[in-house]
Design a protein around this nucleic acid. Structure first.
Lengths: 236, 236
DNA sequence: CCGTCATGGAATCAATGATACGACCACCCG
DNA sequence: CGGGTGGTCGTATCATTGATTCCATGACGG
């Protein structure tokens, strides 16, 4: 089995390389097969069809994306990590435009989980922020906002570097969205302390759980907390 | 000439229809030709190649986009128009996902001007806002922020309606970006009245020009105003 | 040692982007 | 009026590429 595993990996790598070098952001299954010294039926047995191969490439792209994030974040300041995460995202897009487009552009029938997993990664980072009371929205709602802005800017950067290549634009967008999602330490907590406290407790619970309550009780508690914090958006 | 014009239009329309109905967001040149009763060489004479056809479809999509905007905006409140413009953009994306993706997704070698013209449309709407002193940034800088967020959210909506289909999400994003770009009437003008006044004058000049000064003088004046308002971003 | 099954390859099919070349037609010039 | 000329279109065809069929080969178990 390790044999086919290695073959799979080799084909994905070849496909990713050819995708990066292709002028039209597309690949030919023949070329990928020739690059690794096999014939086409092998590819179709391993990946089903061309879309399956591209899905695998996208998922592999997520692995590199996640590795990049793991390497450069995770300090003791979750908000700083969040900002670094935005910049890392932009850098990843700039360095791998074709792969980035494959991962984040709508592709009908795609079974790739790259986008969802990136979303989950962002939610996790946001929950660490929420645990310190730095979040004004539900993590999943905040993640939707941040990720959309991030992807939109990155795709525009790829499509038209002349108009959207300005690095200060990225920081301006980042600060704009973060200003909506984060609270300057205490300002918003003063305004609605109940809401803030509920968000904080909820984040802590979802992050670490508790042994003081039975699971059923915890679930109910979370439900109540959700109702308290509901006004800020739909359930995630 | 009207003959080939009509043929061109018919082919573009057929291509757009087939694109909307296609499951994979792609079309076959053969099918387009058969739909209008001509053979492939005519397509290649009219559009050069498939990319040329798609460029024409994208540009035609812009026409419909612009018509939609012209129909529903242009009240006496430019800020309200701006908000309506955001919602129209989202609606256009939702109603024409394949076309939208063709227009706003990075396409190597594309000669379509759809994105740039949408950008210009947004800049024009923003200059009307700037003329009333409602803008805190250069129109082109603000346009980059708004358009990126708008496109990012729309593409995510297309790619994953379950996660990004919530309409309140669109309004939340809209208000977030607009809050950064717009000023609540007078709040910011109080803080830095010189900056605000310069922005306002500059917008008026770029919008209507003036007969009171020679062109050279106007150009120099604009240059000075740009220097005064520089701190908020790069030149557009 | 032989049968069975999985694995890979040669050959091929089908769809599709793109083109060479000849027929046709309108228009202009003599 | 007739022939040439330019352009427009269609037939037939090529080349690329996604996808499949079918056979050979080799490993493993009985």
């Amino acid at each position: 089995m390790t044999d086919t595993e290695a073959l799979r990996a080799a084909m994905i790598e070849a496909a990713e390389r050819q995708l990066a070098e292709s002028a039209d952001h597309d690949i030919a299954t023949r070329a990928v097969c020739e690059a690794v010294g096999v014939t086409q039926p092998v590819l179709y047995r391993l990946f089903g069809d061309k879309r399956g191969l591209l899905d695998a490439v996208a998922d592999h792209g997520y692995e590199r994306y996640a590795a990049l994030k793991a390497a450069e974040e995770q300090t003791d300041d979750p908000v700083a990590d969040l900002r670094a995460g935005w910049d890392n995202h932009m850098r990843f897009a700039r360095d791998n435009p074709a792969l980035y487009q494959l991962m984040f552009t709508p592709r009908p029938w795609s079974h790739s989980t790259a986008r969802d997993r990136v979303f989950d990664l962002l939610v996790a980072a946001l929950m660490r922020c929420a645990a310190t009371g730095a979040l004004t929205l539900e993590p999943r709602t905040a993640a939707r906002l941040i990720l959309s802005a991030n992807i939109g800017l990155a795709l525009n950067h790829i499509a038209d570097p002349a108009l959207f290549g300005d690095p200060t634009l990225s920081h301006r967008m980042r600060d704009t969205v973060f200003a909506r999602v984060l609270t300057e330490t205490t300002a918003r907590e003063e305004a609605d302390p109940l809401h803030a406290a509920a968000l904080r407790l909820r984040a802590q619970l979802e992050l670490a759980g508790t042994d003081a309550l039975e699971p059923v009780e915890t679930a109910l508690l979370l439900h109540w907390l959700e109702r308290i914090t509901r006004p800020d958006g739909t359930a995630g």
